[in-house]
Amino acid sequence: MMKRFGVICAIFLIVNISFGQSLNDFVNKGLEDNDISQRLPQLDTLITIAKNNSPRLKFFDSDFEYWDGQITLEKRAWLNNINLDAAYGYGIFDNLSDQQIAGDPGSQTLFSTEQSRYTVGASIKLPLSSIFNRGRKIKNAKAEADKSKYQKDFAEWELEQLIVRQYNDLIKAHRLFFISNSIVESYKVQAVRADKDFANGAINVTEYTRLQQMLNQAISAFESQRSEFLIALKSLEGTVGIKIEF
């Protein structure tokens, strides 16, 4: 009886070892055939697309454009102190006589004519604040424009780091998802064998229950890894701004 039990254990151990080796071969070969990194867009391409679609980077572009315009406005602010006035009138006007124009004090005659009149005038005022604060205002506008540019550069660096991390997380999650699926399939095969062995009395209830629990745990791990894979995929798609097909 003990001899028979020893033979059964030896056979079970050999089967498990050979089955484990074939599973490893299957997983390794399967990962080569199902390498998601070979079907994903290139990392540089994803980074470029993400930069073009990033609302944050577009905000910094608009902010820089605004402050760049403010520099021009501050440089031209002195024009606000120059006023040009023009007026036009048409009707009957009283005019001085030639004698009055010549300076004859005895001539008091005015004559009326129907005519058009144009008047043009210019005035300049230079407040001291405009003179002394002009340079400072221009420097402030330039500083704001530079700050917006540097903020965009930093945001681009952060975006690149995020995409690299999410890209690698997606590849890792896909590989673990594939491996967990392979493990579930292997335990399903073992479960079928366990059903036959239990029906034939080759294994007891304890061993049969243990194999069923291992299958349930493998299925639970598979579902968890499936969720991680989908989260990694959606996170990368959300950052890049496109739907990734592979």
Rank of each mutant, 00 (worst) to 15 (best):
Q166H: 08
Q166P: 03
N168Q: 08
N168H: 15
D169I: 13
D169W: 09
D169E: 14
L170A: 07
I171N: 14
I171Q: 11
I171W: 00
I171C: 15
K172R: 12
K172M: 12
A173R: 00
A173C: 00
A173Y: 02
A173S: 01
H174M: 03
H174Y: 07
H174L: 04
H174K: 08
R175H: 07
R175I: 00
R175L: 03
R175S: 06
R175A: 13
L176P: 07
L176I: 06
L176C: 15
F177C: 10
F177V: 05
F177W: 06
F177P: 04
F177K: 09
I179Q: 04
I179H: 06
I179T: 06
S180M: 03
S180D: 15
S180T: 09
S180Q: 10
N181S: 15
S182V: 13
S182Y: 07
I183T: 04
I183G: 15
I183M: 07
I183K: 13
V184R: 02
V184T: 12
V184G: 03
E185H: 03
E185T: 14
E185Q: 05
S186L: 05
Y187C: 04
Y187M: 10
Y187W: 00
K188W: 00
K188R: 08
K188T: 06
V189Y: 00
V189M: 01
V189G: 00
Q190H: 14
Q190T: 11
A191H: 00
A191S: 01
A191N: 12
A191Q: 06
V192W: 12
R193T: 09
R193K: 03
R193L: 04
R193D: 11
A194L: 02
A194N: 09
A194E: 01
D195P: 08
D195Q: 15
K196R: 01
K196Q: 03
K196C: 01
D197V: 11
D197S: 11
D197Y: 08
F198Q: 10
F198V: 10
A199M: 03
A199E: 08
N200R: 14
N200P: 15
G201L: 07
G201C: 00
G201I: 00
G201T: 02
G201Q: 01
A202P: 11
